[in-house]
Each structure stands twice: as C-alpha cells, then as structure tokens.
C-alpha cells in the first residue's frame, strides 16, 4: 500500500519553534511517508533518562487538559468524521494512556495490541489511513507544544527534553500507523478471498455439460483457481463439454489470456471440449494483439449460442435448427 501523507497540521508547529528559537534546528522531517516506516533507525531513547521520567510525570499531571486539547484538534482537523465526539474522546483517552505508557516503559507491545484492536473496530466504519496517521501526529504536536510551553524559559533544557521525547514519539507514531496498515491489508486479503470464492461457481446445466460463468476482474491467481475448480468439476460431473462464459469480464491481459488457453488444453487432456462465449470486441482485439494462439479455442458469440453448440457436441438436437445434425459428427472430439 503506497500512501504518502503530507501532514500539514504539523508544519506550523515546526516553523514556530524554529522562528522563535533559532538556536538549534530540530531534527524533523517535513513529510511523513508510510512506506518509509519500518522500524525506526533512530536509536531508542534511554527510558531511565531522568528527563523522560520528568516528561512522563508532566503528561500524567496534565492528562485531562492535554487529552481534551487533542480531541478538540482532531475534530477541528475533521479527522475521524465517521465517529462521534464521545467515541473520539474515549479512544483518545486510551491512546493517550497507552502513549504515556510507551514513553515510560519503552515497550510498544500493549500499544501495538491496542492499535490493532482499534483498527479492527474502525476499519469497517471507513476510517482511512491518513486519519489514523493524522491523529497520532496531532497528539505528537499537542504534547510537543505543551513541553515547549513548560520549558520555554530554559531553551537548553527544552532541547534536551525534546531530544528525549522525539525518538519515542516517532516510534509510537510508527507503531500505530503500521498496525493500522497491516490490519487493513489483512482485511483486504480476507475480503478478496471471500469474493473469489463467491464468484467462481461451476454449474452443471445438464448431464455432461458444465457452465463456468466468469465475472469480474480476473487476475493470475484467480484464473488459476478457476482452472483448478473447472478441472475438478469436469472429473466430478463427468463433463464432456464446458461452456466458459466471459461476458462478465471487463478486460483481459496476456497472463489471463494465456491461462484461458491452458484451461482449454487441460480440459481437453481430460477429454472435455471447451466453448468460450461472450468475448467482447475489446477482449477479442486484445487477444489478437497479444498474439495468443486461439486456434484450439472454440468461440461462440453468446452464452445461448454456446449452450446450443454444446448440446450439438453432446449429440442432442436443437429444436429451433431446421438443419438436422448428425450424431456421428456430434461426438467428435478436437483430436
């Protein structure tokens, strides 16, 4: 998942600090890119650092006020719009407490578990990655401002406090963002799997005749799954003719076209003939352009025509046809 999040809300804070106190530039990155977050290379803060302990005490003391400030900033920035104010406040409280705990103990495990749990709850409600990254960075900003306010009388101390705070805060932001993205990817994978299973039925129309209606975008993985299912279906149903209808497939690429050819060949190895129906002009054009060898493919315009052709191959007579069809020719295979 590639997503680049430009955290505008964060920038003014940096500028402000720099403008007012140009003594020492802050180590900050103006942009925050998810693909760059793995595990931060920044050395972790020493959690026995007295400054960090002081910091934790400060955050504990001002819990109520800072938490409210954060929730207010979230609402102002129009993040988490899918959630009510109460929900935001309650989640904010949990994240805040977890945040302080990470600063104190140096262990991100609890936060990680909470972030996963939170993601699991908010992903179905449509919360986006930029919102999650946004709120964590807002918290970082709220806390940084509060530290700045507290230590503004002593720039040297302020700098040292921020030096202790920064790596830990970065690590926390990474943890939450990565947990969210991982959870999201897991959900997407799960859904893809469910869709695949739903959309690949092999139907028996009559004895010895199967229909495989392909619907939706076919990628290499799904094409392979369809083939496997079809081949098993041929054996299970003792099918002799298969109609593969691709009316519902919007586009086809080279991999999938080649796969289609392989499906036809594999079916033939098992003694079944394949009829392809519903090739749109676009797909037909693609296939010709790609140069896939379709000489072994038996293509018929539409599904109905395909079923009629299949019945002819099976030796049935199609009533609407005036021309009699010899049963001898009907049983011939593509040998």
């Amino acid at each position: 998942m590639r997503q680049s999040v430009n955290v505008r809300t964060h920038r003014p804070a940096v500028l402000q600090l720099k403008l007012n106190h140009p003594i020492r530039p802050m180590k900050r990155k103006p942009e925050f890119k998810i693909q760059n977050i793995t595990h931060p290379s920044t050395p972790l803060a020493d959690y026995n650092d007295p400054l960090l302990r002081e910091l934790v005490a400060h955050l504990r003391q001002n819990r109520t006020q800072l938490r409210e400030e954060w929730a207010r900033r979230i609402t102002d920035a129009q993040l988490l719009t899918a959630m009510t104010k109460e929900e935001i406040f309650s989640e904010a409280t949990s994240v805040y407490d977890n945040y302080v705990e990470v600063l104190e103990t140096g262990s991100v495990e609890a936060l990680q578990a909470y972030a996963r749990n939170l993601s699991e709850r908010i992903i179905p409600r449509g919360v986006e990655t930029h919102e999650v990254v946004g709120i964590v960075l807002l918290l970082r900003d709220v806390l940084a401002r509060s530290l700045f306010k507290k230590y503004q009388g002593d720039f040297d101390l302020l700098n040292r406090v921020l030096d202790a705070y920064e790596p830990a805060a970065n690590r926390i932001a990474n943890t939450v963002a990565v947990s969210f993205v991982q959870e999201r990817e897991r959900v997407i994978r799960q859904q893809q799997e469910a869709i695949r299973e739903l959309s690949t039925p092999v139907l028996q129309v009559r004895e010895r005749l199967l229909i495989l209606p392909m619907i939706g975008v076919i990628d290499a993985h799904r094409a392979r799954q369809l083939t496997e299912q079809l081949l098993r279906g041929i054996r299970a149903n003792r099918a002799k003719v298969v109609v593969v209808d691709i009316t519902g497939v919007p586009t086809i690429d080279q991999t999938v076209a080649n796969h289609l050819v392989k499906t036809v060949e594999a079916s033939r190895l098992m003694g079944a003939s394949v009829i392809i129906t519903g090739l749109s002009a676009e797909i037909a054009q693609t296939i010709v352009t790609i140069g896939v060898d379709l000489s072994k493919m038996n293509a018929v315009g539409d599904l109905q025509g395909g079923i009629e052709e299949a019945e002819r191959l099976l030796g049935y007579k199609v009533i609407s046809t005036a021309e009699p069809v010899g049963s001898t020719a009907a049983k011939e295979q593509g040998a």
């Binding site: 496997e228 081949l231 041929i234 054996r235 392989k262 594999a266 098992m270």
Partner: peptide, 12 residues
C-alpha cells in the same frame, strides 16, 4: 484416458 485434474494442470 484418466488424466487427473492436477496432472492435466501440471502438464499444460
């Protein structure tokens, strides 16, 4: 006769 589904798949 009797080429199994998985075998047919591997062959192609």
């Amino acid at each position: 006769v009797g080429i199994q589904p998985d075998v047919a798949f591997a062959m192609v």
